[in-house]
Design a protein around this nucleic acid. Structure first.
Lengths: 183, 183, 183, 183
DNA sequence: TGTTAAACGAGACGGTACGTCCCGTCTTCTA
DNA sequence: TAGAAGACGGGACGTACCGTCTCGTTTAACA
């Protein structure tokens, strides 16, 4: 037989609450108990659908990224496309999404399953997208694209984590400039 | 009056235990209670000298780095020096030290004081060292050294965190190669 | 409209399951959820017809007692009748029925409605029956029958609960003997 | 080494809180969480010294009984001694102590260890005391004292549980009267 | 050379989040 | 409309670790 269907209201309230708490208290200080209370749901309802706060926030993050990261149109100017792509990415990274993805990455250090899921759902697709933009001609054809992707996202991650410098439009231009000097 | 002086034996046992637990269980699963028990010391003895497990492990890490990171001698070949420096750095990063520094960085996301201390004692000095090695001539003189440092350590951090690729000698060579193509 | 009639199959399955679970796990460990699952019925079906597990088991118990407690025939020997009545009662009390009635009594301590229902449907009728048997001449006519009933069932309850001694034929004889010595 | 000694303050607060909650909400509705909160102590502090609420309340009850049940002096009149003993016992049984002992007995039905402890610490000693009082001459010497004890306490328990009649001085007199008629 | 005060181990303290279980209610589909 | 299924909000369970506290026991500098 059928049984009561999953409540879409509860699902959204939980994802929303997780997001809000993360913005207010920081990823590390979010708890499953806190999420359930903020969402006005029972604890079991959260655990029924997600095993950890990381999984809740991963789904929240997936939602944000689906909304706020439209594909970069091909303008014909490879460098302009790269800058546009980076601007878009960096804007998102400076907000809650950045906080979440950094927190997820931290948790993933001691949770192999989460690490795999994070690579598959978040990191991998963004790498694919960047690779495609770089392949439009921003680099000499014999440069290893994987390394180039590592360089670009590496700088972003390093600054997001260490906060020794901003992750903004200037950085996008600087990166594009540096890559443009590669012969 | 004087009072009993701090026990050097306890101090070393605690730093050692923290390191061992981190190697065995991973940074996130280390607890102050566990450190004290593994060190055969009282809980209060740990709290008396360090406020958090992050501070204990930061001191452990400082010790490791002082031992295992001698300055890179100037061989006259800028690229070879860079590769040597990176090899040394990457070797350390693949071990417990990498696990610790990643964990500390994760905690630093929600602890500004730790973040500052981490930048000052670990990240900053390594940036200085890399900047000095790069300044030996591995790059055109008008390339922004700060950005270059970000690129190099960015790739390392990104791979350490995301584990989509190794952080080894090959990477050192590839990075040196890429930087060498900048005109 | 008429609507679907109550399922006699479900009703019996639930009463049966409650009994079985009580025999297997003990009264205290029986749950409404467990009863529904064991009966292969929905939880709501149980709650629709009974409010608590106590009510389910009260009905189960009523069924057992209606089956297993035929009236004691008047043999002409008051003492023999008393012993026969007690044997019958004690046999039932040593089985699941005893476990249930003890559990119900325990729950009734914090549930006045259950207490009333228990007195009305179980305890009261048995008191009536015992009073009638005693009135056949086992006691001097000026002995307070209510107190005599309390004595007989009191001993039974006390032993059922505290288990410091058996509730068996010997006890029936001993009680009859003691009452017989009252002048 | 030594370690911080157990807090007598916390111990008493917990026993007191358990007692108060039992008086206010009834035995069944007392919870370990509630006890800890009412005592202003941590949950772990309760669990460190008692495994279940039954054990907490058993200790509370032991305390009450030690205070409120002085030995019955031998007046030379066996029947008067019995009545005095029962009055004292019944008075206690009508209060919180009665509620607790009934609740404990209920729990003991599904907890053999508790049952044994209850018999050893509460039921047994009271049986011993009653037996001693009865042995002063309230009964013919060939009456089985164990059965007599069962009769007296049986009536009390039966009425405490079923509440079909009071457990008061009148009952004490009636019981003494009935036992006095045994030849 | 004995005094003394701080550091030491041990471990109990009040708290809080964990993940699980059951409660009694509700919302769906099926018969 | 009853029934099977099962999700819902709620709350107690027993555990782990938090950071603090209070013991008795060292231990080295000072008197």
């Amino acid at each position: 037989m059928a049984g009561r269907p999953r409540s879409e209201v509860a699902r959204k309230a939980i994802l929303r609450a997780a997001l809000d708490l993360c913005a207010r208290d920081g990823y590390q200080n979010v708890t499953m108990k806190g999420i359930a209370e903020a969402a006005g749901s029972g604890r079991q309802t959260v655990y029924r659908w997600w095993q950890t706060k990381a999984q809740v926030l991963l789904e929240s993050l997936t939602g944000i990224m689906a909304e706020d990261l439209p594909p970069t149109p091909d303008s014909g100017d490879p460098r302009a496309d790269l800058v546009a792509f980076l601007e878009q990415t960096f804007t998102l990274a400076r907000g809650v999404a950045g906080q979440i993805v950094v927190g997820l990455m931290a948790d993933a250090q001691s949770d192999a399953a989460l690490a795999a899921e994070l690579r598959e759902k978040i990191i991998g697709p963004r790498r694919d997208a960047l690779r495609a933009v770089l392949a439009r001609g921003a680099l000499p054809p014999d440069v290893d694209l994987e390394l180039a992707v590592d360089v670009v996202f590496g700088v972003m991650w390093y600054r997001l984590l260490n906060r020794h410098a901003e992750v903004n439009v200037d950085l996008a231009e600087e990166i594009a400039g540096l890559l443009g000097r590669i012969r």
